[in-house]
Every structure is written in structure tokens, then in C-alpha cells.
């Protein structure tokens, strides 16, 4: 019995020490990891769709609660006015969720640009949604409230040939972004005021 207790104590102490150590390391690296994830996963897309902004959207970001979850918004400053926000939405693709970054101008509710961030589509087929700009370019300048659909479904968007499911997923994501945007528009404008300076 004493032996058993000794074993338990040793293991417990080991686990406690390692747990404590990990907590310290995790705390120390948390902010950097978040920034790195934004920079390398979403950064290229954000920079691409907010091209020409005079600020760094990765630094100028804010969070808003949307129902149960929190959403990240990235601010783009154009001509001295902070009136573009980019945020990520998800659509259902062929191989799983497709992350789409949508940038909206809050003045006229028009889409500034969209870009695919993460996906697990077939390489060379659905993956062209990320690499080939022909799909995402079509959304530029369109009002965000429109119900986007691919042409096969009677909509206005030319799907990538051979990747209709992926294109449909991107459209669905943009439609979803419109809903989120309308829901949170008031808060977004409120928050943007902080960046106007």
C-alpha cells in the first residue's frame, strides 16, 4: 500500500511540474503564435485583397462577438479613411470547409475583394480556387447583399471548370458573409471609428 502511494505521488508530482512548465511556456508564446498564424495562414490573402491599404491589417484588427463565437475583423485604410473590413467565413467545399476572406467597404456595402485562405480541395482541381484569381475576381465590386450562385445553379458566377462544388462552396461562403455583415454592421462601424484617426 505504501508503495502504491509512493508511485501515485511521484507521478502526480511529475505531471504537476510538467503541467506548470507547459502553462508558463504557453502563456509566453500565446500572442506570438496567434500573430504568426494570422501572418502565414491568412496574411497573404488579407494583404492580397486589401492591396493598396496604407496600414497593416494584421495589426489593425478587432474582435466582435457574434452569437456564441468571436470574429476577427481586419481593417484596411484607403486614402486615409478606415472604411474597409475583411473577415473570414466558411463554405462547404468538396473536401471540407473552405475558408474565404471577404473584404467589404462599409460606405457602400460593396465587396472590395475575396480570397480563399484555407481549403482541403483536390490539388490541381478545386485548389485552383485559391491559386487562380478568375473566380475571386468576379466578386469584386458587387454588392454584398446579392445571393451569389454559380451559373449552373442559375446565378451570375462562372464556376472554375471541373470544380463546380468548390465554386459553389465559395459562393455560399460569400452569401454567408453578407448575412454576418448585415448582422454586425452597426458594431463594425462603431469599432471602425477608433481607426479613423
Amino acid at each position: 500500500m505504501r508503495e502504491m502511494i509512493r508511485l501515485l505521488v511521484v507521478i502526480a508530482v511529475f505531471s504537476a511540474v510538467s503541467g506548470g512548465l507547459l502553462a508558463v511556456v504557453q502563456k509566453g508564446t500565446k500572442d506570438r503564435i496567434e500573430y504568426q498564424q494570422l501572418k502565414f495562414v491568412k496574411g497573404p490573402t488579407i494583404h492580397h485583397i486589401l492591396e493598396g491599404s496604407s496600414n497593416d491589417p494584421l495589426v489593425d484588427r478587432f474582435k466582435l462577438p457574434d452569437g456564441k463565437e468571436e470574429r476577427n475583423f481586419f481593417v484596411g485604410v484607403f486614402d486615409g479613411k478606415a472604411d474597409v473590413v475583411a473577415f473570414e467565413v466558411f463554405g462547404k467545399g468538396f473536401g471540407g470547409d473552405i475558408g474565404v476572406m471577404v473584404a467589404v467597404n462599409v460606405e457602400n456595402d460593396e465587396i472590395v475583394g475575396i480570397g480563399v485562405t484555407t481549403h482541403s480541395e483536390t490539388p490541381g482541381v478545386g485548389s485552383r480556387a485559391k491559386t487562380d484569381p478568375s473566380l475571386s475576381e468576379q466578386f469584386k465590386g458587387l454588392p454584398i447583399k446579392e445571393p451569389f450562385k454559380v451559373k449552373a445553379d442559375g446565378g451570375q458566377i462562372d464556376a472554375i471548370s471541373g470544380a463546380t462544388v468548390t465554386s459553389r462552396g465559395v459562393c455560399g461562403a460569400v452569401v454567408g458573409s453578407g448575412e454576418i455583415y448585415m448582422r454586425l454592421k452597426k458594431d463594425i462601424i462603431e469599432k471602425l471609428k477608433a481607426f479613423k484617426a
Binding site: 508511485l7 511521484v10 507521478i11 510538467s18 507547459l22 511556456v25 508564446t29 504568426q36
Partner: peptide, 28 residues
């Protein structure tokens, strides 16, 4: 009697440290 478990705890701790540090500094 519990040496393997202890070894694994030690190793896992350091692996997690490495993982976090790599995420923070060499993300690609």
C-alpha cells in the same frame, strides 16, 4: 514500476515546449 510513464511525461513535456516555440518563431 512506473518508469515508462514518467519518461513519457518528461518527453511529452519537452515535445510540447518545442511545438509551441516552433509555432511562435518558425511557423512555416
Amino acid at each position: 514500476q512506473v518508469r515508462i510513464a514518467c519518461f513519457i511525461v518528461v518527453i511529452a513535456t519537452f515535445v510540447t515546449v518545442v511545438e509551441l516555440v516552433m509555432q511562435a518563431y518558425t511557423y512555416p
